[in-house]
């Protein structure tokens, strides 16, 4: 079974020393477990310097073909990304595979009045947007914002990362109402949650994600291999859904995604 990991990261993370320190460590662990590719961000873009972190992620990905860069963004396109054109140029030049948002730690609301320009761009590019639930405090109001974004930007694949085992009553209604809403497998660990989501909403809504090296990736590989769902659905979760989303990204420069 192929596995492509939508939720990985490299870099420092105080106060914890992560068990994978370098891209080489990560590739070794991926090979041990049979993970073919991982979408990575650099934690500097989250925890210290946005642009430095984004450049580090693309540089690492250039040197490690099994890694795909993820760009951390905020709503301020003009001030932080050289405007819409600057963002598009960066995304195309580095074949960014997804954009990741940290609304709580980066001090912005996901409400459309604030994120409309960013999400208009994401919609034009059909770019997957990863929203980090463990950082995102996931109050009821924030789920409201998530739902509104999904409804107002149906062409943007919105991926809630690390949804947590207590979240069914909030994420299931969004899964039911929004075809563009996805969750990843990291901490989708409540009893039979993978099976229940697959049965009720379809395996199309689940992306394989490990949150390595914050979490141990092997357990999520195993969770899918041992899931009580069809082989076809396992393949969708393990890699086909991610490949499908990737094929839909529109890169205005340099040709579309492979």
């Amino acid at each position: 079974m192929r596995f492509i990991d939508i939720n990985a990261m490299l870099g420092e993370w105080t106060p914890k020393r992560l068990f994978l320190q370098t891209a080489e460590d990560m590739e070794k662990e991926m090979a041990r477990l049979g993970i073919e590719k991982a979408y990575i961000m650099d934690t500097k873009a989250w925890l210290s310097e946005l642009s430095v972190g984004n450049l580090a992620a693309v540089q690492t990905a250039k040197e490690h073909p099994a890694l795909r860069p993820v760009m951390v963004m905020t709503p301020l396109l003009e001030q932080e990304f050289g405007g819409r054109e600057g963002a598009v140029e960066f995304i195309c030049r580095h074949r960014v595979g997804a954009v990741r948002l940290f609304p709580l730690d980066h001090n912005f609301t996901l409400h459309p009045w604030n994120t409309d320009r960013l999400f208009t761009l994401m919609s034009d590019l059909r770019m997957p947007v990863l929203i980090d639930r463990m950082e995102h405090s996931a109050s009821f109001e924030e789920y409201d914002q998530l739902y509104r974004l999904c409804r107002e930007y149906p062409d943007v694949p919105v991926v809630l990362l690390t949804p947590g085992y207590r979240s069914a009553r909030m994420i299931y209604p969004i899964l039911e109402k929004c075809a563009n809403f996805y969750v990843d497998t990291s901490l989708l660990i409540a009893y039979r949650a993978v099976e229940e989501i697959t049965a009720c909403f379809g395996a199309e809504h689940i992306l394989f994600g490990t949150r390595m090296p914050y979490l141990e990736p092997g357990t999520f590989v195993g969770r899918i291999l041992y899931a009580d769902i069809s082989e076809e659905d396992k393949e969708k979760i393990a890699y086909k859904n991610i490949v499908r989303l990737d094929s839909q990204i529109r890169y205005p420069y340099g040709g579309n995604s492979q």
Partner: peptide
Amino acid sequence: DYPFHDLRYGLTRVLFAD
């Protein structure tokens, strides 16, 4: 911690550990 966590989750953590 079944059923708060799926029984397979904790088990695969050990089975797949290095």
